[in-house]
Amino acid sequence: MTLHHQLIVNHLSAGYDDKIILQDININIEAGQITSIIGANACGKSTLLRTMSRLMSPSQGQVLLDGKSIHSTPSRQLAQTLGLLPQSPIAPEGITVGDLVSRGRHPHHGFISRWNKADDNAIAKALETTKTTELMDREIDELSGGQRQRVWIAMALAQETSILLLDEPTTFLDVAHQMEVLDLLIDLNQQQGTTIVLVLHDLNLAARYSDQLIAMKQGQIHAYGTPTNVITEGIIQSVFGLHNQVILDPLSGHPMVLPIGRHKITKNT
């Protein structure tokens, strides 16, 4: 996939009722890269992702996909380019993995278009990329948390969008399954050139797995750039209000945050 779609956030403000959550956000999402949004609770991370994916309407500004506002693009057309895995999707009772993943093809079908080979191909590929082929006939309810998340990602992959947004895809997973999901996203990014934007809680995983980081604070972008530029003691201190030390992760060479609390620190910082 060489065609890159461009996602630009332009003077965006958004909120619920009279409460403003995002204020004048400007970002140019790097096409073909992995961008993570980090920040303290309630800083507007999810709201930014939700507005970028049209789940919320902006109060001011725009989100532009290839120069066109996503909020005035027909839903189905948008869904062919921009995919989203929401934070808590609901699996209909008793649905099988194969059935669920196949629903990712929805935006590619019109009112009476026939199911075709391209659909089956996309589903097969999504199942294999996420290593969920063997789960195909199982019901979602009987899967583990990690398996279930892989299946939901498979559904988003079957949609075959060149941009994929994920809202905290690792939240309820143990650390091994978190790695599994993030590795899968890297595979996807490398093999298919998919532009990925996700909200992540774990700073160190975000620093290791992302090409770009967006650090948010109180509804505004505090820092935007490569992990080396964003993960610094000063920025982390300011964004999270956390006393910390940044070292280089000996395994990946990426920056890594060591939090400093009031106890258990034996060395002078």
Partner: peptide, 9 residues
Amino acid sequence: GDDTAQALG
């Protein structure tokens, strides 16, 4: 869910 449906266009 509404979010997933919206994501599916």
